[in-house]
Each structure stands twice: as structure tokens, then as C-alpha cells.
Design a protein around this nucleic acid. Structure first.
Lengths: 212, 212
DNA sequence: GAAATCAGTGAACATGCGTACACTCAAATT
DNA sequence: AATTTGAGTGTACGCATGTTCACTGATTTC
């Protein structure tokens, strides 16, 4: 990792931010191998090319670092859903679009998804709590998006909320699979995508018929 | 924890097994607070009322202890499904029965379910692998049980397998919720149970209509 | 150009860790 | 009754950890 040399004097702010990002990236990478909770402050610092004491200039504790990673991860996720909304394709076919977006997004920022999927259950208390909170928020946000969709607009609020919850649960679950997926197996990836599609279809179909 | 005193000389075997169980129970309890991977050999030994070196008389490493806990947890789960099969009630209404069994079983051996739910994603590599393997086995076993059910007997093998997978995923997911549930809130428990029921119904209904 | 700021340094500390080794002493075997 | 066995002990070791403190020296502020 080794934060790039000041070169020819980057402004102080810029250099500080650079180091901060190096620490975040190091923590993310090390977490992938051993889980965030087993990563030590010294490991992160070492990997970021900085002395342990310097760590405190950026985060007051490992817990705070963890929370920063949660925030970073979800801002990635939010950008993804915002972009997807602009895509007219989703109006025709939410399910295929969602499956595409999911797999694509997970591939793009695998590390962040992996972090959320792992630390949601295995992380330190504060991190788990933060993730659960963010996921709840995300369910509500997704519900708003879904409610606008043509074939859903007449559903009750509660039903939309529940479909949203099931979708998010499904997303987390599939993210876990992508995470555990060995590298360089794009065939498995397609399989996961297809599975995600089928499950979402199941949810929607089941709901429609149940409500009628 | 403190393994009970030899009292008036329990046979050597018996006393050894007693200590072994004390270690397993200690590890399970400590894992609940911090996750298995952060539990140290010395913590477990201390909590079990035994000197660190004695640990090695029972397990050659913490990894092996973890695997033993996986085994113990799944034998609990298997006993549960075996008992449920004998209950004639399940033939009429798999879903309600499954929901009851799930919540009841989880309540009864909360610690083991918590362990599986947590360490499946957050645990050390070997433990994660073992759990994934056991869950795969469990999916197949459940599929056999499901295939015998009256309203399912004419389904294709693949469909039964997939329903089984969705059920197990659902089970894990609900176990997670029960795990994160604050103590002494039986109202939440009923809510989770109801949620589990609805989701299983969704799966079955969705499947029936999709296949037709 | 002098003074202040502050990101990053380096040494030192107390603590908890895993494991090695030689041991004890009651139960089991002979 | 004499001997062997083996679960549990106690000490000691080297190592990584989180945090402290006084520090340096380039950048920013004045």
C-alpha cells in the first residue's frame, strides 16, 4: 500500500487525505483476509506505510475506522441505486435490471460488499449496529423507488416495504456468495446472477398471487 | 464455568469428558460476546477453570475447537429435524410446523444457532468452510424430507432442491434475527416467527404458480 | 522572514498471547 | 502392592499488541 511520497509537496490537506485513504484501503484489504475484528491497529498502519502513532491523527480508534468503512461502503451502494433509477431500462423489467446492477456493482466494489456482508454478522458490536441501521435505511429507500414502478404503484405501503426487505435480504445473501466466490470464475458469477433473478421473480410472483 | 471438582473421584474418562464439555461451553459463551475468532486459547481455558496447557489435552488448536463446535451445533440441528419428521402435524401444514420448530429450536439452543449464523461468515477460514459444507448437507437432507410431503411429491428433484435451499437460507436468516434479538422480548420473537411463516408461504406459493 | 501548526516519527511501557518443558499425583493397570 | 498412565499444573520464553510521550521538520500563517 505505502502512501505515495509527497513528491513535490502536495498541500498538507491533500497529503493527509491521501494517507487517510491509504489507511481505509489497507483496512479493507486486510479485513478481506482475516475479518476486520482481527486486524490490528499496527497491521493497518504498517500496511499503509505509516507508523502506528500516526494512525491516531486520522482515527481515534479501530472502531471509528470500522464506522468510516461502513459509511464508505454504503455511499458506494447509494450511488449505485441512484444511477439505476436514471436508467429507463428498469421500468420495463425491474428484476433483470436489479440482477444486472447487483452483480455489476458487487464486481466493481467487491471489497465494500464483502465488508458489509462479513461485518454485518461477524464484526465488532458498533460496526454491526451501524450496518444494520444503514441496511434498514436502504430498505426504505429502495421501497420508495419500487413504489414508483408501474406494476407496483397500487400496492399497499406495507407490501412494498416487505418486498423491499426481501429484495435487500436477497441482495446481501447474493453478495455473500459473490464474496466467497473464487477469483477468475465468471461462469459461477453468471450462475449467481441467474439465481438472484429467479429468487426475485419468485418474490414478485408470490406476492402478486398472494394478494389477489 | 469452572469444571466441577472431582468430588469423590469420577472415573478418569468421565472427568475428562466433563472438562472437554466445559471448554466447549466456555468457547460458545465467549464467542457470543466477541466472536469465536477473537476468543483466545487462554480466555477459554481460564473460563473453563483450567490452566492453558491443559487445553491441549483436549484440542490440538483453537481451529480444532471451532470445528468441534460446528459439529456439536449441527448435531443439535439434525436431532431437531429428525424429531419434526415423526410429528404427524407436519404433513398437514409444513409451513406453520417449520416456523414453530425453527423458533422453538432456536430458542432452545440459541447459542449453537448463534454460533453457526455468526461464524458462517465471520469465523476463521476452516470454520467457515466446515459450516458451509454442513449447510449444503442439510439442504439435501431437508430436500429428502420435503419430497415425501403430499403436496410436493410430484415436483421435480431440482425444484425440491431449490425450495430446500431457499428454506435453509431463510432459516439462517431468521436465526440471525433471533440472535440479534435483545433478551426478554417475546413479542419480537412472535414477529420473527410470523415473518418466517410468511416468507415460507411466499416461497411455496411462488413456486406452485411459477411451475404451472 | 519569523512563528505557529501539525502529520508523521521512534523509543519505551505494560499486557496478553501461544507454546515448550519438566512436574505432580490420583486413577487405572499389572 | 508396585508400576504405569495421563489430566492437569507452574514457570518461563519470545513476540505482537495498544497507547504514552517527547520529538522533527516541512507547510501554512502571520
Amino acid at each position: 500500500m505505502k502512501v505515495s511520497e509527497p513528491a513535490q509537496s502536495a498541500s498538507r490537506q491533500v497529503q493527509k487525505e491521501r494517507t487517510r485513504q491509504a489507511i481505509l484501503a489497507s483496512a479493507l484489504e486486510l479485513s478481506h483476509e482475516q475479518g476486520f475484528a482481527q486486524v490490528s491497529l499496527r497491521q493497518v498502519s504498517r500496511h499503509a506505510g505509516v507508523v502506528p502513532t500516526a494512525f491516531y491523527r486520522h482515527f481515534e480508534s479501530m472502531d471509528k475506522l470500522g464506522l468510516a468503512l461502513v459509511e464508505q461502503s454504503f455511499s458506494t451502494l447509494r450511488r449505485m441505486i441512484r444511477d439505476a433509477q436514471r436508467d429507463p431500462h428498469v421500468f420495463d423489467n425491474i428484476i433483470d435490471a436489479a440482477a444486472d446492477v447487483l452483480v455489476e456493482a458487487v464486481k466493481q466494489s467487491k471489497a465494500h460488499f464483502a465488508f458489509v456482508a462479513r461485518e454485518r454478522v461477524g464484526g465488532p458490536e458498533v460496526v454491526r449496529t451501524a450496518i444494520r441501521h444503514e441496511l434498514d435505511l436502504f430498505v426504505s429507500e429502495l421501497a420508495v423507488v419500487l413504489a414508483r414502478l408501474p406494476n407496483i404503484e397500487n400496492w399497499s405501503t406495507e407490501d412494498v416495504q416487505m418486498v423491499s426487505r426481501l429484495f435487500v435480504r436477497n441482495m446481501v445473501s447474493n453478495a455473500e456468495e459473490v464474496v466467497e466466490m473464487p477469483d477468475g470464475r465468471p461462469d459461477l458469477e453468471e450462475k449467481i446472477k441467474e439465481g438472484a433473478r429467479r429468487q426475485m421473480r419468485l418474490i414478485v410472483v408470490g406476492f402478486r398471487d398472494w394478494r389477489s
